[in-house]
């Protein structure tokens, strides 16, 4: 195997270190958000303690949909500009998005069971979210299966754009279809319909998850860069 270019590898190493450092800070912020949610936020009157999942499920959904939207945007820009950094970013964002989706798709049923009486229902919001997860698992599988870097970047960019198209539909499903899933309480045209203490905790959790997204994508970008340098040491 050819040794990767020294300067590029140094940059990859610095990015992974910086990204993992940010991720550790974000995990501490996440722990703080958990303490805030469980100890310093009122229990919701109708749902009781089950509603505390809200402070995990919504930030995870936010991070996952942001991650997949950015994959689509970076993919479209890659097809236009052919800059390999956009492909590396899309790869990193897709993997982190799949991880956040896993959190969203496990906390959702844990919340649904005591409130809806069922773990899962095949309504539009849940089904499309599951399909989005499968699209990006497929995206990662496609990347692993194609060995030529240019072909891999082009093929996966097309799939990344397909995923982006699904994101606004997922947001609008609760308006377009009859569904058990509640309508947005924050991301809607009118003011947030949440008491201040709950909104504050949600904002702290969203900030922690967003910071975690930034840290993980930075680290994953560095990992992708190191792998690319091993594939082709002359790569930009």
């Amino acid at each position: 195997m050819t040794e990767p270019a020294g300067a590029g590898l140094g940059q990859a190493r610095a990015l992974t270190r910086r990204g993992l450092g940010i991720s550790v800070v974000a995990l501490v912020a996440f722990a703080g958000a958990c303490v805030l949610a469980l100890g310093f936020t009122p229990v919701e009157a109708r749902q009781g303690l089950a509603q505390k999942i809200f402070y995990l499920h919504v930030p995870a959904a936010w991070s996952a949909l942001m991650a997949f939207s950015l994959v689509g945007i970076a993919s479209a820009l890659y097809l236009w500009l052919h800059d390999p950094r956009l492909d590396l970013f899309a790869e990193a964002s897709a993997e982190v998005g799949v991880m956040f989706s896993a959190v969203m798709l496990t906390t959702g049923p844990i919340w649904a069971k005591p409130i809806w009486g069922t773990w899962w229902t095949w309504d539009a919001r849940l089904t499309l979210t599951l399909f989005l997860f499968f699209i990006f698992v497929g995206y990662l599988a496609l990347r692993a299966a194609v060995h030529d870097p240019d072909e891999r970047a082009r093929f996966s960019a097309v799939l990344g754009i397909m995923g982006l198209v699904l994101v606004p539909f997922i947001h609008l499903t609760v308006y377009l279809f009859r569904t058990l899933h509640p309508q947005p309480v924050v991301l809607k045209p009118s003011a947030p319909s949440l008491p201040w203490e709950m909104l504050r905790t949600l904002m702290v959790a969203v900030a922690a998850f967003t910071l975690l997204y930034v840290g993980l994508v930075t680290a994953r970008y560095g990992l992708g860069l190191a792998r690319r340098l091993r594939e082709s040491p002359d790569a930009p």
Partner: peptide, 30 residues
């Protein structure tokens, strides 16, 4: 409710540790 917090923490920690190990291997960092 507790299960949701446990599962989320486990998923996040497993991913971060896995990423750290992969990055260490790929970059030759010690």
């Amino acid at each position: 409710m507790v299960a949701g917090y446990v599962v989320t923490t486990v998923i996040l920690l497993v991913y971060v540790v896995g990423l750290w190990r992969r990055a260490k291997q790929a970059t030759g960092d010690r």
